[in-house]
């Protein structure tokens, strides 16, 4: 189907159809060419990690996947990105509908200045996922359970989400994203603002989420990528340098640039 060498090799190891396929993606910020001809297939029910030095374009590419770049007026995206075979940059696609399907968790925990309950219920409410209050209660509880926050939060659902600790806040944001029942979860360096203990909790959570979603995580920590992901993509200066099984990337990278990064020479 695709004649690109990289994608072919990835597909070989994957029996399922890819969840996301990106072909020839270019991103420009004004005059800056931020993403240069990226081709990648992302599998379902898998954790895919994007690694690379800062400014390499990994976050930019992630934001293309749910069209968050639309909110930046100078950003321009070219190429073809499909989810389940549907072009998400098609004129008929409403980014709002797309983002319900592709949830996102951000670098800094950003709970809304509302109660914990209202934070989680926000997505279901705007998307009209519940018929009544008990429905909504159930969605909130499920989401908090899946984000491993239920036990800590069940007695303080009406308290503001901003009162939680950093790690709890980030799990709240994950619960908030999960509550809209997305199919894909994008995570933009979700642990960079957290302490090691909170990081460990979130990483454990990511591993569990893999059962239900296709998870794409951007991280600057190679150890984290090694711990949580099955697939790893290495970005450098806007290029996708290498993409493959996480174990393979970290033990026997093909590209010398990947090798230098992993061994700490670029970064």
């Amino acid at each position: 189907m695709y004649d690109m060498r990289l994608t072919e090799r990835v597909l070989d190891t994957e029996t399922d159809k890819p969840k996301i396929t990106a072909k020839g993606v270019q991103v420009y910020y004004g005059d800056t060419h931020a993403i240069k001809d990226v081709n990648v297939d992302i599998a379902d029910k898998t954790v895919t990690a994007f690694i690379g030095p800062s400014g390499c374009g990994k976050s930019t590419f992630l934001r293309c996947l749910n069209r968050m770049n639309d909110t930046i007026s100078i950003a321009r995206v070219e190429g073809d990105i499909r989810i389940d075979g549907e072009d998400i940059y098609d004129k008929r696609v409403d980014p709002v509908q797309l983002r319900a399907k592709v949830g996102m968790v951000f670098q800094k925990p950003n709970p809304f200045p509302k109660s914990i309950y209202d934070n989680v219920a926000y997505g279901p409410r705007i998307h009209g996922l519940s018929r009544n209050k008990s429905d909504l209660d159930e969605i909130v509880e499920n989401a908090l359970r899946r984000a491993a926050l239920w036990d800590e939060a069940k007695d303080r659902l009406s308290q503001p989400g901003t009162g939680l600790s950093g790690g709890q806040q980030q799990r709240l944001c994950i619960a908030r994203a999960v509550a809209t029942a997305p199919e894909i979860l994008l995570m933009d360096e979700p642990c960079s603002a957290l302490d090691p203990i909170a990081t460990a909790q979130v990483e454990e959570l990511i591993d569990e989420l893999r059962q239900s979603y296709s998870v794409v995580i951007v991280t600057h920590s190679m150890q984290q990528a090694a711990r949580v992901s099955q697939k790893t993509a290495f970005f450098h200066l806007g290029h996708l340098v290498e993409y493959g099984e996480t174990g393979k990337i970290f033990t026997s990278p093909e590209d010398p640039r990947t090798e230098s990064y992993i061994s700490g020479r670029i970064g």
Binding site: E86, A100, G123, L129, D135, E183
Partner: peptide, 10 residues
């Protein structure tokens, strides 16, 4: 429960 993103995007 059926999510908002179920079904075709188009």
């Amino acid at each position: 429960p059926a999510g908002a993103g179920q079904g075709s995007l188009l």
